[in-house]
Amino acid sequence: MLAMERLGYVLGVFCAGVALLYGVWGDWAEPVGVVGLTLGALLGFMIAGYLNITRRKLDGVPPEDDPLGEISDIAGDFGFFSPHSWWPLWLAGSAAIIFLGLAIGWWLVALGTFFAIPALVGWVFEYWKGPHAL
Rank of each mutant, 00 (worst) to 15 (best):
D65L: 06
Y22S: 00
M46N: 09
V121Q: 05
P131H: 11
D66M: 05
G101L: 07
D27E: 13
A95P: 09
G60C: 11
A96N: 01
C15L: 10
G40H: 03
S94V: 02
I97Q: 01
A19Q: 03
P63T: 05
E70T: 13
D77F: 00
A41C: 05
A110S: 13
F80K: 09
V121A: 12
D65N: 12
P62Q: 11
W25E: 09
D66S: 06
P118N: 04
V34L: 00
E64M: 09
W123T: 01
A103V: 10
P62H: 14
F45T: 02
W86V: 09
L134E: 14
R55S: 00
G26L: 08
V13A: 15
F14Q: 05
F114S: 11
R56T: 04
P118G: 01
Y127R: 15
A29Y: 03
L39W: 11
A41V: 06
S72H: 07
V32C: 04
D73Y: 04
I71S: 11
G130N: 12
E5I: 14
E70D: 15
G8I: 07
F14A: 13
L43G: 13
H132L: 12
S72E: 10
D27W: 03
W87Q: 09
V34M: 05
W87F: 00
L102R: 05
K129V: 12
L39Y: 10
A29E: 14
F125G: 12
P83R: 15
V124A: 15
A29D: 14
G26C: 04
A19G: 05
L89C: 04
L2E: 14
L120Y: 01
W87S: 05
V32M: 13
Y22G: 03
G105S: 14
A48R: 00
P31W: 15
A96H: 01
I47M: 12
L120N: 03
G60Y: 00
I97A: 11
W25Q: 09
A19T: 00
L20Y: 01
L51E: 06
G76Q: 04
M1H: 08
L134M: 11
D66T: 02
T54N: 12
V35D: 05
V13R: 08
G36D: 01
I117P: 03
I71Y: 10
G101N: 06
A92D: 08
V121S: 05
E30W: 07
L7G: 10
